[in-house]
Amino acid sequence: MTHDPHDHDHEGHDHEHEHAHGHDPHAPIQAKEPEGYYPLLADAVRELLIEKGYFTADQHRAFIEKIDARSPALGAKIVARAWTDPKFKQRLLDDGKKACAEMGVDINVANLVVVENSPAVHNVIVCTLCSCYPVFVLGRPPDWYKSAAYRSRVVRDPRGVLKEFGAEIARDREVRVHDSTADMRYLVLPMRPKGTEGWSAEQLENIVTRDTMVGVAECRVQQ
């Protein structure tokens, strides 16, 4: 029997993509080009570390799985709790790592510095040297956070960059840039907006987005 990609039937699948692209979706997968230098180097180092017994392939996979399971929803839970529990907020500002551990969130780095926005101060986070980011409370960073443009510009023209993100910071508020250069990671504790009095934790968590915890946006009550 010949194997025509069109003659068999997938339930609820009309093969529209074939018409759009005009190629055989069942063709064998072939490598198009060799891997780049750095991905290849990373693979080689990983294999060497496994060979030398520093960790197993399964431990390495499990670590990636653990990172991939993190998302800004975790950070939002921490912020919403800080908004509604002043004692927890104080513990969070005093020692971010310990306070997160209380909520079952393992930070996995030396410490988490939580910086609080106020009518007097707006905080924004960057890593000018590479792309240090609080992965264990926010998940993987967005591409713009890792871009040379953000990293070089937000440190010297934070107000200009924030304006491009749509956040105009009042001139009389201090803008404080946190350059994540060594062992700490940073999380912005955004201001709780007016009109959220009496909201449930879940309602509050919904308005705490990734960008508000990096400091390129402020929390808003959705219109």
């Binding site: 023209d157 803008v175 060594a182």
Partner: peptide, 29 residues
């Protein structure tokens, strides 16, 4: 020992245009 050090932006960047109170904080050994 690792420190967090706060700098006035107008000192770090002589052409800084924001609020003179603006700051940058950096971890330094």
């Amino acid at each position: 020992v690792l420190y967090r050090v706060r700098f006035p932006q107008t000192h770090v960047w002589p052409d800084y245009r924001g609020n003179p109170k603006d700051t940058v904080e950096i971890e330094i050994f």
